Simulated scan of single mutants.
Amino acid sequence: MAAKFIYRIKKVQRLMTERKIDILVVVKRENIIYLTGLTQIENMAVLIPIEGEPCIIANWLDADYIEEESGLKTFSYFKPRENLGDKIAKRINAYGFRNVIIGLEKYFISNTVFETIKKALPEAKFIDASDLFYKVRAIKEPSEVEKIKQAAVMVCKGMETALNLIRPGVSMLELSKEVEYALLKMNSNRIPFRIQIVSGERGLLNYAASSCKYIKDGNIVLVFLEAIYEGYYAKICRTIAVGKIPLEQELLFENLLEAQEKAIAALRPGAKAWEVDFTARRIFKKLGLENQFMDIIGYGVGLRPIEYFPIIGRKYHDLIEAGMVIELFSPKIYVKDRGGPRITDLIYVGEHENEILTAFPRKLFRV
């Protein structure tokens, strides 16, 4: 097994000791990628004991391949005679735990697998360990940062494609297809979330999808893109003015950009998440728009487009550390008739200075 994966497993085991977890059952795709480097990971689980060697449970068709690629002992199960839950329970017993405390990814393990383990191990205690993985993955290794940078190059190229095509009379759905094709040609593993190219009142929707609506002169168009490189995400959002737009909207964007710049400057090792949020939020408080800016303004980014540690928001005390990659801003300004502008970038928190990984001009674009 590669040294970096051994190092990651040791990090997980240290946190297990703090949480008094005897064994972790890992089924979530990004956690398996993080711990093993595998991407052929359907219908499988990684078991990590508090001490000793982890193992993998996999479908018999994949078991030999997975063991060879991961370097971990792999136990197979034969469907339909056996199922994943049965085999997990047997291997937990084989580790020799008594009154075992099992950590699970609560929202990601199937009910069938969970109930099977629970029935086979009636003395076991189950706890949610989802947050453990977010904390382990929060500090990025140099190789992880490089993969995020590659994905960032893709979204920047995708944004360039969008800017070259945006004009009155083009449908946003047609535009989305062209941008998606451009991202796939640049070897984005897949399009992780639907491309959002929206304008007008749809710009205020939380997860608006591109529609058949045509771009009109005087519109503000929001372009939000994501890409994946070897499992790692990048994202970007820019605001484009088509023709002349109201001065109120231009000023709102300038305020948003100022707030983002101040938040990026505050995103330093040792800062608390709420302090970064406060730095940005006070600009909107002066304008009477504090309540039009969502309580959470950013998240970690990595093997998920949203990593739930750290969370940048007014009620969060997560500690910012060097090596984190964080998006700012996640939300837009929600003001009817003049709101909707948004700017999103990925920030690498360095020891001495930050780096904006989405190296694309940060301004109000005009076409």
Rank of each mutant, 00 (worst) to 15 (best):
G302N: 05
L256H: 10
F126W: 07
K11F: 15
E144D: 10
L61D: 09
Y34E: 04
E18C: 09
V335Q: 13
R338V: 10
K157W: 00
K11D: 05
L303K: 09
R167A: 01
I117F: 13
D295M: 07
V27F: 12
E82H: 01
I23D: 04
Q13L: 09
L204N: 03
A129S: 15
A94T: 00
G96Y: 12
K185M: 04
R190C: 08
P361W: 14
V27P: 13
I56V: 11
P305Q: 12
G288H: 08
L204H: 14
C212V: 11
P310F: 12
A280D: 08
N187A: 08
K135W: 09
I283A: 02
L184D: 03
A162W: 00
P310C: 14
K147V: 02
E160F: 06
D295F: 06
L319A: 04
G298T: 10
G231F: 11
Q13E: 09
K135L: 10
K286T: 05
I50K: 14
K106E: 02
T239F: 13
E105H: 01
R238D: 07
Y7L: 03
L104M: 12
K216L: 13
E275R: 14
Q260A: 11
G313N: 08
P331M: 05
D128W: 14
Y34C: 10
F133E: 02
A266M: 15
A182V: 08
V153K: 01
M172G: 09
E53Y: 07
I228A: 03
V12K: 03
K87T: 05
G288Y: 15
Y348S: 04
Y65G: 09
F133C: 03
I283F: 05
S76W: 08
N83S: 05
V367E: 00
R98S: 03
L251D: 00
V276I: 11
V136C: 04
L205T: 04
I311M: 00
R366E: 00
I240M: 01
P341Y: 13
D86S: 01
L287W: 14
K11H: 11
V242Y: 04
S70E: 07
A45Y: 07
L38E: 04
V145L: 15
Q249H: 00
Y229L: 00
V301F: 09
L183C: 11
E307A: 04
N206G: 07
E353S: 08
K185H: 06
G158T: 13
Y65V: 10
R202C: 08
R194D: 13
F309A: 00
E248L: 06
E258K: 13
E115G: 11
N189L: 12
Q260I: 06
A266E: 02
A138D: 10
D131R: 10
E258P: 13
A273C: 12
I66P: 12
V155N: 04
D217M: 02
E115V: 03
I23A: 00
